[in-house]
Computed example of a mutant assay.
Amino acid sequence: MEWVAALLLFVFMCGLLNLMLPQPPASRWRRGVQALAGRLARRLRRRTVPEPDPFDTLRLQTRLGHLAGEIRRIETAPGVYARAHRLMAVEAAYDDLLDEACRLAGIPTEAELKRGEEKRWREEQELASRGWSW
């Protein structure tokens, strides 16, 4: 037990001596080791994923609802000029918003599916199962 106390006293004295003596300039080897340790620490450090802002989610849901209503209006209105062009443009915007909503909700995207009814339906079902409504 006495040897533990002597060891602790020795380490304490070495620490005090290190504080009292002037520090030598850092060598190239020491700077390299410090840089390597810093890179390793940054790589191993856990990256926290920030929680999505609920107001961004609400804005996105509101915009999805607006575009879904616009699609229904274009499909049902008999006298819409350039109906096909407008419908394609609104559906493309809707698909982009669905992709962004899936990213916010943490839903993995299926890259092999092309844009269309099947992908849109799957994304809407996944979002609805996670409590999204628009």
Rank of each mutant, 00 (worst) to 15 (best):
K119W: 03
A41K: 15
E91S: 11
E123Q: 05
R72P: 04
A26L: 13
K119L: 05
D95M: 10
A68H: 09
R39K: 07
L98R: 00
M88S: 14
T76E: 02
H85P: 06
E51W: 08
V80H: 04
D56S: 14
L44Q: 14
R63M: 14
L113N: 02
L58K: 12
H85C: 09
L8Y: 04
E112M: 15
A77K: 05
L67A: 10
L9Q: 04
A128M: 13
W121I: 06
L8H: 08
P78S: 05
W29L: 11
E51F: 07
F55E: 08
P25R: 05
E112F: 14
R83G: 03
A77Q: 09
R45S: 09
W132D: 02
D53V: 09
G106H: 05
E75D: 12
L58G: 03
V11D: 08
G15C: 06
S129P: 13
L8E: 04
R47P: 09
G32E: 08
E75I: 05
H85L: 07
A105F: 02
R83T: 01
D53W: 14
D95T: 03
A37W: 07
L127C: 01
A101C: 10
A35D: 04
L67V: 08
L36F: 10
L87W: 03
G131V: 01
P22I: 01
R103E: 08
W3M: 13
E70A: 06
E126G: 03
Q34P: 09
A37K: 13
L44H: 10
P50H: 09
A105T: 02
R72F: 05
L17P: 02
V49T: 07
C102G: 03
P25H: 05
A105P: 05
P54F: 06
R28T: 01
R31W: 13
R46H: 14
P78H: 03
A89L: 14
A6D: 12
I107H: 04
A82H: 11
E110K: 11
G116P: 10
S27L: 02
R115C: 11
I71C: 05
W134C: 05
A77Y: 02
G69L: 13
A84F: 12
V11W: 10
A93N: 11
R86P: 01
A128V: 08
C14K: 08
E124W: 01
L36H: 10
G79D: 08
S27P: 00
G106D: 02
D96I: 07
L104A: 01
P108A: 07
P22N: 06
T109L: 14
L7V: 07
L9F: 13
W3N: 10
P52T: 00
L19V: 01
R120V: 03
D99Y: 06
M20P: 04
A101E: 02
T62D: 04
R72C: 07
N18Y: 00
P54H: 05
R115W: 10
